[in-house]
Computed example of a mutant assay.
Amino acid sequence: MFDKTREFFMARFLRPKPIGLYRYGSDGLDGDLENLSFADPMPEAMRIYGSNFYGPRNVYGGGARVSDRNMTTKLRLTGRKRRLVDFEGQQHMYLVSRRFIDIVEGFQKEIQYFPVECSWTDGSRAGQFFFFFTTVLLDAVIREKTTATCTPLRSGGGLWQPKGGEAFAFDKSRLGNIHMWVDPNMPTEGALMTEALHDALKDAKIESFYEWTYSEEI
């Protein structure tokens, strides 16, 4: 039976929002982006759910510390020159500004980021940004208060596949002071963030992430 004294709250998925009509790509000019890996020792929970995780470049990465081996330090942005935003997705990872990092660090220190010097296809400088990860892997879903279905996996655990109209409840006591994390049962959804962190990013006019709520308070 669900304990009614437990505190639950709303959370959101952190997703990049394309600017304008186009999604722009990029090329790594050094390192080897095809062979990024998590750092050792990998958390036990990551080992248990290993079949669901394909490395740091799977849906923006996160959930464990990333090895700097093969990480690029130079990124060439394709497409026309444009005003760069604080938050976007490149190479299936979060590419963010220092301003974004400063806000998140005000909420939690369990994050990791790698500096990346960005340039345009003509060789001119576009600025310094960072590949960004939360290092927290945590299952905080209160199953008794969640209306979505979790599909069991042969390897153990289960798989949430959020759909419209379904609601998730999250247990605040499991998170403590964490505000951004990856759920091991949602490996294809990207990082989750609390409403407090979402509001701070929005108030600071951080561009550009989706603002709709996937997980509803119930």
Rank of each mutant, 00 (worst) to 15 (best):
A169V: 01
R143K: 11
G157N: 04
K163Y: 06
F168Q: 06
W160K: 01
G157P: 04
I206M: 03
G190H: 05
M193P: 03
E166Y: 11
A167Y: 12
R174I: 13
W181R: 14
A204G: 06
K172H: 08
D139V: 01
A200F: 02
M180Q: 12
E166K: 12
P187H: 09
G190A: 10
G176W: 08
D171V: 03
S155H: 05
A148Y: 04
H198T: 00
C150G: 01
Q161N: 09
E144A: 12
E195N: 08
K205A: 13
G190P: 02
V182G: 02
K163G: 10
N177A: 13
A148P: 00
A140E: 03
G165I: 08
R154Q: 13
V182Y: 05
A200N: 02
W181S: 12
N185M: 15
D171K: 05
P162H: 09
S173P: 02
A148S: 13
T188R: 14
E189L: 03
P184T: 09
G190V: 03
N185S: 15
S173L: 09
L153I: 08
R174Q: 13
T149C: 05
L175S: 04
P152S: 08
L153E: 10
A140L: 02
W181H: 14
P162Y: 01
D139N: 15
D139I: 03
A204T: 05
H198P: 00
E195F: 02
T147N: 05
I178C: 10
K145Q: 10
A191C: 13
D139E: 11
D183W: 08
A204L: 04
P152N: 06
A191M: 13
D199E: 13
P184V: 08
D199F: 01
I206K: 05
A204P: 06
H198G: 04
C150A: 12
G190W: 01
A191E: 11
L201P: 03
V182R: 15
W181C: 12
G176V: 07
L201Q: 02
S155P: 00
N177H: 11
A200D: 01
